[in-house]
Amino acid sequence: MSIDWNDLYRSTFPDLVRFLHRKVWDAERARDLAQEAFVRALAHEPKKPRAWLFQVAANLAKDEARTAIRRKKHLVLLKAEAEVRQESASDPASEMAERERWGQVKEALDMLSEKDREALLLWDAGQSYTEIARHTGLAVGAVGTTLARARRRLAEAHNAREQVDVAR
């Protein structure tokens, strides 16, 4: 079966960026890594590209965290994207508020176990239970339980953080 890469790209790229963003916490870097994952996918043409992409993206994010090598983007992006970035960067106050929000979410996610966090982020990025099971090594029947636990802990951790902030 031939793969419509254009369609797959348009439907999966945002999910992949969202998934990566919660791992590297840098929107631009997440976009770069998502592009890199697609570059590799186009070169390899895997049979199950969506699952493959998320696996590669997870590995890229892991490498990124491990090596923390500063890299600059070199892939060609749309002009519109650059403009969007410029606009968002032109408002320091909103940028600061955004970073604070991200910091709160990151703290809450850090309270989860690695497997719970991975399952939750994959689900949020649009992966099915079967795909999450394949990615994490869980049984399909265990994905729901893992997600239930992860969601509860995330909500509780975030609420606790908000209460601390209000108390200040």
Partner: peptide, 19 residues
Amino acid sequence: VLALAAPEVTVPSFEELRA
């Protein structure tokens, strides 16, 4: 909670990526 950390995503051109 997760939506609070959702980045704005613009999809770059697939043709350029392919090239």
